[in-house]
Design a protein around this nucleic acid. Structure first.
Length: 320
DNA sequence: GCCAGTCAAGTCCCG
DNA sequence: CGGGACTTGACTGGC
């Protein structure tokens, strides 16, 4: 079984390389000349994409081939008072450069839109905004030249005091979402509302790959033993051309259990790998730790010290 | 140059 | 029902 590790959105090691620089709407309004303000937004977005390319180069230099792109590349992209702003035109060339680099250096990249993209809302305005944000992600993927299939991880959404009803609302809303956006989606179990079993219910019904978040599962489950659902999780990936992916993080502390720790506990990870060994030919694990790439590099170091895993490259190894 | 406060979005929580 | 907490990284303002 091949295991490939990745990390999230930004680097603790590269200086001044944030892909999520921003301008709030309050700041935007304070600028008298609207055209100048829009040009500033465009400069920030271009800089974010430029930093994104630096991050990709940093990844290649360190043998990392799995990476989550920031979902905050374009500040205020979906703001209702900026509907006339065609943010894509000035970004066409920078996005193309990302795509060209990715063609030379293959890397699995995807997005995790912010948690206010909720597809199971009963409010049609909120659904409209969620779809708008997903359309931006679609445009970014197209601009880079990445196939849309399974590139956006989302949570199921709100519980609204009746989770069964909330799940049915998801199914209802799903019918109003265009196939090209449906195709982008993966669903993840969350740490407060929807468990693995509930997420699986939707994934199986609608043909959506499920991203298993081990930490969230520990925080929120009906049945503690996830292994009973593992085969079902794996099966949701049969319809995808990409290998199964999941999220790995450690709790910050017992009292602050849901928060992400700085690093990943290697013993916990090794125990987990031992459980799933041989169940899939290849798995991609997204390391979600406060220390981002530094946590990934530390985990790799820990694994090298503790195991005799055969490393294919600095961030991928084989378990027999 | 550091620390506290602000910003954005939805949901959730409390009174 | 309304206001505040939550979450995240970036940024601003006060000292």
């Amino acid at each position: 079984m091949i295991v490939r590790l990745g990390y999230v959105a930004m680097s603790m090691e590269l200086q001044n390389a944030s892909p999520s620089q921003t301008m709030t709407f309050a700041q935007f309004k304070r600028i008298k000349d609207r055209e100048a303000a829009i040009r500033k937004l465009e400069r920030i977005a271009e800089s974010n994409i430029e930093n994104c390319l630096r991050l990709l180069k940093h990844n290649v230099g360190n043998g990392v081939h799995f990476f989550r792109l920031s979902s905050r590349l374009i500040p205020l992209a979906n703001h209702e008072e900026l509907l006339d702003w065609n943010y894509l035109t000035p970004l066409k060339e920078p996005l193309k450069r990302l795509g060209e680099y990715l063609k030379e250096h293959p890397m699995r990249v995807d997005f995790h839109p912010d948690h206010f993209v909720v597809l199971n809302t009963p409010d049609s305005e909120i659904l409209k905004n969620a779809v708008k944000t997903l359309s931006m992600h679609k445009a970014l993927l197209k601009g880079i030249g990445i196939d849309l299939e399974h590139r956006c991880v989302l949570h199921v959404g709100g519980g609204y005091d009746d989770k069964e009803k909330a799940l049915e609302q998801f199914i209802h809303n799903w019918g109003f979402i265009s196939p090209s956006i449906q195709k982008m989606i993966m669903l993840e179990n969350d740490d407060t509302t929807f468990t693995v079993k509930e997420t699986l219910y939707l994934c199986e019904k609608l043909g959506i790959p499920m991203v298993f978040d081990y930490h969230h599962h520990l925080a929120n489950h009906e049945e503690a033993d996830w292994r009973n659902d593992w085969d079902r999780i794996v099966s949701t990936w049969e319809l995808s051309s990409l290998p199964i992916k999941m999220h790995i993080s450690s709790p910050r502390s017992e009292s602050d259990f849901r928060a992400h720790a700085d690093y990943v506990d290697p013993e916990m990870f090794l125990q987990f790998l031992d459980e799933i060994k041989g169940t899939v030919p290849e798995i991609h694990c997204m390391i979600e730790a406060k220390q981002k790439d530094a946590a990934l590099f530390q985990l790799i170091k820990d694994l090298r010290e503790r195991t005799s895993f055969r490393f294919l490259d600095p961030s991928s190894f084989i378990i027999d």
